[in-house]
Amino acid sequence: MVFRELSLPVRLLFYLFLAVAAVSILYPLTWMSYTSLKTNEEVMFSPFGLPTRISFENIAEAWQTGNFARLYANSILIAVVSVIGIISISTTAAYGLARYHFSANRALFLYFLVGMAVPTQALMVPSFKLMAILDSWANALHLPIPLLNSPLPVILTYMSWSSLAIIFIRAYFISIPPELEDAARVDGARELQILRLVMVPLAMPAIATMTIFYFVFFWNDFLWPLIYLHKHTLRTIPLGIMHFEGKYVSLWSLQVAALSLAAWPPILIYILFHRRIQRGLTEGALKF
C-alpha cells in the first residue's frame, strides 16, 4: 500500500483521523499548561477557556507554598544518584555477563521476567524492616550511614532494579567485536581499564538510552518515596504533589500550576531526547 496511490477522500479521512488523535493526546497536556498560566479570576469564570493574558502568579505561588525548590532538589538528588549507581552496576555486570564464561542468558531472562512479575508491594514490608535493621547496625558501629529518614533507602532500592539495563547493555556489548579488547589487552590494559576506556565509550548509545529511561522512571516513581520518605523535607515531587493536591482542594488554579511544575521536566526531557527514547524502546522489544 503506497500512500500516494490512495484517492483524495481517503487521504483526507486519514489526516482527519490523525488530527483527532493528535488533539485528544495534546489536549490534557496543553490544558494543564495554559491553565497554570491564567489568573485566578479567569480560572473561575472560564475554567476551560484559553487565557487572555499570560500570568505567572499561580506558578509562583505554587512554587512557594508547595516548597517546590525543595521538592526539585530532592527529586534530582535521588534520580541522579540512583541513575549513576544503576548505570555503573549494570555496565560492569553486563560486561561480566557478555565476556566471561557464564551461560547466563536464560537465567537472566528468567530473572527479568520474575523481576517484572514480582509485585513490588510484596517487597515493601520486608524491605522497610531490612532498612531498619541495617540502620540499627550502622548506628551500633557508629557509621554515618542513615538508612531511615534519608533518601538513601530509596536510592539503594532503585539501584537494585538493574535487570533491564543489564540485558540492554549486555546485548550491545556482545555486538562489539572482541578483537578490540584483545588489542587493548596486548597493549597491557587491565580488565577494568578495558571496560572503562574501550567498552564504555563504544556502548555509549545504549548507556545513554538507559540513562534517560531510568531518570524519567525514577522521577515519576511514587511508591518507594511513599514508603521511606516520611519527613516533609525529604519529599520528592510525586509525593509533594499528592500532599499539595490534598491540601488545596478548592484552589483549582493553584493545583494545576503545581501539576505543571511536576510534569514539565519529563516533557522537556522527552522533547529533547524523543528519538533516543523511541529507539531504545523498540530495541528492547526486539530482543525479547
Partner: peptide, 15 residues
C-alpha cells in the same frame, strides 16, 4: 503519540 507515555505519573493522574 508517544508523549503521554513519557509524562505518566502522579501529575498526569490529577490532570
Amino acid at each position: 503519540f508517544y508523549l503521554p507515555a513519557a509524562v505518566s505519573g502522579v501529575a498526569m493522574t490529577f490532570v
